[in-house]
Amino acid sequence: MVAISLEHVTYRYPLGTGDALDDISFHIGQGEVYALIGGNGSGKTTVCNIIRGFIPQFYKGTLTGSVMVNDKPVSEYDDAELTQIVGYSFQNPFTQMSGVKDNVREEIGYALENLGLPREDIGRRVDAMIELLDLQEMADQNPLELSGGQRQRVAIAAVLVTDPQIVILDEPTSQLDPQSTEDIFNIIKLLKNQGKTIVLVEHKIDLVAEYCDYALLLEEGRVAMGGPIRDVLTDPKVMDHGGQLPQVARFFIDRNTKLGLCDPIPLTVQEAVEFKTGRGN
């Protein structure tokens, strides 16, 4: 089943001088982990806002083309219904706390309270999120006293607690240390195993290569490249469009060029090892 589809989507922000997005088309199947990559200002967050319906609901401007979630136009959903299907963790970790809750536990449960769930259900689901994101130590702290990295994990917990089918994560690891970053990617893997669809905006391309199924590379509001992760991230053209190659892929592409080889290009360290053993060297 197609979870998300955009067809010929063009969008201009109110007072914008040019199109923020220009004729964007792509589909995301249910259960896929789909990476949106590209330079700052290339349109990644705008795409997320369109999928979630914030554009044109809150940001007006001119939107044309078709945007569907679960085969139904986003414009035909009422917001409460769409909120339950699409969870969205925002880019800036410093502004995503509600500001109305004085401890992390209540912050995470806020959305469930709004949905009118029974107290004990809320408690159970919040506890599960605290465990999943390893937030035990800060459960009773004020969300506004947390560091950027801590807020980022609380924000993700507050999104996942509603158990949405589709999860949009806009740079979920930007403030995180390497270990916490990997923990978030392991959670993404877990969500994939639960059959969830994930849209991930991320600059850490080596981890995108390891965990994502597809990538769409945006450049100045247009689709520059797109397809299965291997096809996109082993193609040096990525760099001509403001993107980056994974370190390992880039190394082997350079090596092939310098030594006149045409060895297959691994995406990750683990693949490099497997390729080597496979070739019997």
Partner: peptide, 10 residues
């Protein structure tokens, strides 16, 4: 943390 959220050119 100047590198947080920066793309390759930045």
């Amino acid at each position: 943390e100047p590198t947080a959220g920066q793309d390759a050119p930045s």
